[in-house]
Design a protein around this nucleic acid. Structure first.
Length: 322
DNA sequence: CATCAGGGCCCTG
DNA sequence: CAGGGCCCTGAT
């Protein structure tokens, strides 16, 4: 009789120790907390923001590293933890990943100028000056998260991710924390849809399989999409099974930093923006999109992101209007 | 207890 | 290009 926990990672904890420290210089202005800590994201046991530092895990060519980001007077400090000595070149890869994932090379000067002349955006931009869109995870990992978000309430999405990490992720120990690293695409590509359905993923089980097969077959996909413009990148992303319009705009902004990726707005966002823009409950999505386009042009998604992050931040402080 | 909509997506006609 | 079906869950 097969124990259903067989071939899981339960019980194994991978110890990682400090191997190197990097110091990176983001472009100015840079807002550390606003960039690395997004209260709008649901919590997962893959990362934590603790005592002013972001802790998360990363896969590099299949092996797992733990990362701690913190702000120092000299710049952004990156502590790198690993299970063994880093291979040659690993630090360069890690630096490149961190720079990209947290949009450290962003040029926000025109956005700051735009916001200064805007009574709606201005006060919020000043509060968060230097905040960038960011995602600590790889494209594949972020798509796994967005699939869990589809057609589900947040609590259910959290359960799906929890179940997946518990079964297919790797638990690590570093810096006194236990954080999960994601599974690699090849792992899920070989799991049957039936097994995935056991984790209460519903019809998304098929998406997880197809997405994992896609990335297992195209490990350089994310790297190839990074330099593309918005429409080309979007076209590439839409080739992936399970990535529709909602997921696509989300990826274009959070992962690929296209500050104008506001061409689709979901129902719940429409509600909130209706209030902010027009002081009504239910404006039409197209009116919301048009408003942002006319007001902020190329910067419209970044502007909307500032509005949302500010709202979520206020809510996390217990003083939101909703 | 049953019914139904929900922070989409794919597929079909 | 419009609309039905889809896993599950919690609200009614």
């Amino acid at each position: 009789m097969m124990d259903h926990n067989e071939q899981t990672n339960r019980g194994y904890v991978r110890p990682l120790s400090l191997q190197a420290t990097l110091t990176l210089r983001p472009t100015e202005p840079f807002n550390f907390v606003g960039t690395v800590h997004k209260p709008s994201h649901f919590p997962m046991r893959t990362d934590t923001f603790l005592d002013g530092a972001l802790w998360f895990t990363m896969r590099l060519d299949g092996y797992i590293v733990g990362i701690c980001l913190r702000e120092t007077p000299h710049g952004l400090e990156v502590l790198v933890f690993a299970g063994s000595r880093l291979r040659r070149g690993a630090l360069l890869d890690i630096e490149e990943e961190v720079r990209f994932r947290f949009d450290l090379d962003a040029d926000l000067h025109d956005f700051v100028r735009l916001a200064e002349a805007d009574p709606m955006l201005g006060p919020i931009e000043r509060r968060w000056r230097g905040l960038r869109p960011s995602c600590a995870y790889s494209l594949y990992e972020l798509i796994c998260i967005t699939i869990a978000l589809q057609n589900a309430q947040v609590t259910r999405s959290e359960r799906m991710m929890e179940a997946l990490l518990d079964k297919y992720g790797s638990l690590t120990a570093f810096g006194g924390l236990n954080l999960f690293a994601f599974w690699g695409p090849t792992t899920l590509a070989e799991v049957s849809e039936e097994d995935l359905r056991q984790l209460k993923l519903g019809y998304r089980a098929k998406s997880y399989r197809r997405v994992s097969e896609f990335f297992a077959a195209a490990p350089a996909f994310e790297r190839e999409v990074r330099p593309l413009d918005k429409s080309l990148a979007g076209r590439e992303l839409r080739r992936i099974y399970g990535v529709g319009p909602a997921t696509c705009w989300y990826l274009l902004f959070e992962k690929f930093h296209h500050y104008d990726a506001f061409d689709y707005v979901s129902p719940w966002e429409t509600k909130i923006l209706s209030q902010l823009f027009f002081h009504v409950d239910d404006a039409r999505p197209q009116d919301v999109l048009d408003f942002a386009w006319r007001r902020w042009g190329h910067w419209r998604m970044l502007a909307v992101h500032y509005l949302f992050e500010d709202l979520f931040w206020q809510r996390s402080q217990g003083r939101a209007a909703w």
